[in-house]
Amino acid sequence: MKPKEIERISKALGDPHRLRIMQEVKRLEWMPCAQICDMLDLAQPSVSHHIKQLVDAGLLIPEKEGRNIKYSIDKEVFGHYITFLNSLVENNI
């Protein structure tokens, strides 16, 4: 992964609302935007901002379904990020 990608992912995961989104999307496998809004009890523009950060970081995949958008986790990107984090502690344990 490029340093900018790692930085973007780390920043995206540094917010408690975005972490909660990731946890719930993982638990349910996918989640529509409206359900994310209900879960967070935030205004729709705030939720959209958080989702955009996660999509821009490559962590969430948007999928249009009719007039709605649902989100799932990009396991490949997340896997590369985990591999990077593991490389930071290898041989240091």
Rank of each mutant, 00 (worst) to 15 (best):
P16K: 10
R8V: 02
P3G: 01
S10D: 01
P3I: 09
R27M: 05
Q23S: 13
L28A: 09
H17I: 04
E24R: 13
I21R: 04
E24A: 08
E7P: 04
M31K: 11
Q23D: 13
S10H: 07
M22T: 03
I21E: 05
R8D: 05
A12Y: 13
E7F: 12
K26V: 08
E5D: 15
M31Q: 06
I21Q: 05
E7C: 06
S10L: 10
L13G: 05
E7G: 03
R18C: 01
K4I: 14
W30L: 08
K26I: 08
L28D: 00
P32F: 06
E5F: 08
Q23N: 10
E7W: 11
Q35F: 14
C33M: 15
I6T: 06
K11N: 12
E7Q: 12
K26D: 05
V25F: 01
R18D: 00
R27N: 06
P3N: 09
K4S: 14
G14I: 01
S10Q: 06
K26W: 05
Q23E: 15
W30P: 00
K4N: 11
Q23L: 15
E7V: 11
P32M: 05
A12G: 06
E7T: 14
R8L: 12
R8Y: 09
I6A: 05
L19N: 15
P16Y: 03
I6C: 04
Q35W: 13
R20T: 11
E29W: 05
V25P: 01
V25W: 02
K11M: 06
R27Q: 07
K4R: 13
L13T: 07
D15N: 15
L13V: 10
I21V: 11
P32E: 12
M31I: 07
E24C: 07
Q23W: 09
W30F: 12
R18A: 03
E29S: 12
K4M: 10
G14Y: 03
I9Y: 08
P32G: 02
R18T: 01
R27F: 00
I6V: 12
